[in-house]
Design a binder for these strands. Sequence first.
DNA 1: GAACACATGTAATTTGTTACATGATTAA
DNA 2: TTAATCATGTAACAAATTACATGTGTTC
Lengths: 174, 174
Amino acid sequence: MTSQDVILGILMKKKLAGYDIKLMFESVFSYFYNASFGTIYPTLGKMEKEGLITKENVIQDGKPNKHIYSITEEGRKRFYDYLYSDIQASDTKSDFMVRLYFGDLADRGRIIQWLKNAIRRAEYTSERLETDYERLKDTLTPTQIICIRLGIESSANKKKVLMEGLQQIESLEE
Amino acid sequence: MTSQDVILGILMKKKLAGYDIKLMFESVFSYFYNASFGTIYPTLGKMEKEGLITKENVIQDGKPNKHIYSITEEGRKRFYDYLYSDIQASDTKSDFMVRLYFGDLADRGRIIQWLKNAIRRAEYTSERLETDYERLKDTLTPTQIICIRLGIESSANKKKVLMEGLQQIESLEE
DNA sequence: GAACACATGTAATTTGTTACATGATTAA
DNA sequence: TTAATCATGTAACAAATTACATGTGTTC
């Protein structure tokens, strides 16, 4: 799975500008995919050259011009090639978990701070996704519902485990 | 957090060869970090040049020679620079979740296959980690216990959510 | 005889990030 | 007036993957 595959998928449903795609990465996709502008724009350029998408120039007033990209037949074909390919193992880099793993090399106060911050983040994520879910649930496809449920429940679960861990750490003798 | 930071952390406790580090990435770290040989060996080389680690040549019979790396004082200092730096947001690329998100473009049979495979993987992961936990729990530090608990419970939770999702999909009219 | 575990390393390529450059409008 | 939102793009650089190359011993 490359950024191109994901962009192709997004354009399957709607024509969009690079900026809009970035907004989607930051909202819906944030807990399972992300890419920066420095990836999105060059990828869109490359895809247009290859005939997978076409560009439309939209002049806006008060705002900069937009390049709206639409997927082509060739692009749709390419997307299905991806959709029916083998699923790759997911790849996670969690700095927080690495810190925890090496936690005995840090002082107790610092660890407690790490845990409290992570608890707050997990809480915030699960609440944000829950709100999104309530707002969007009538427009989501069945598999998108599973996707967002996975996000909500995993962050709620994470919060639970972290709170148990925090209690454990706090109960320890110095 | 770079591969260098993680390798430094691993060498804080024990001198090891690149091959051993790879084994650790595949076992203990697998659910929150990973790096290939193509990353590990060049990184070790660079670290030695910078004086963060030292190399020791170990001749083995029947097996190829090993290069055992030990961390230096300079390396320890560098590790603490990392340990006390800001924690970076975790970065996940889940091909499975992306497929789910675009699931309405795939046929129902395929989706069911995806879900069943993911359920099996989640089950396997949580069982593997649970076994590791039972075997190692007396040697694990308190924060390592939180770390592994996070892995066990998150995969068990994932399995639960996926099974609910599968039922939902299977109950749908064609 | 094939494949796998052990063990290291390089090279080509891909992929991605960060920072910079530009510039209008709007809200604090 | 400062920052944020909107909007695109490039360039320098960093990071990482994949494949290749080498070679022994063991297991199937």
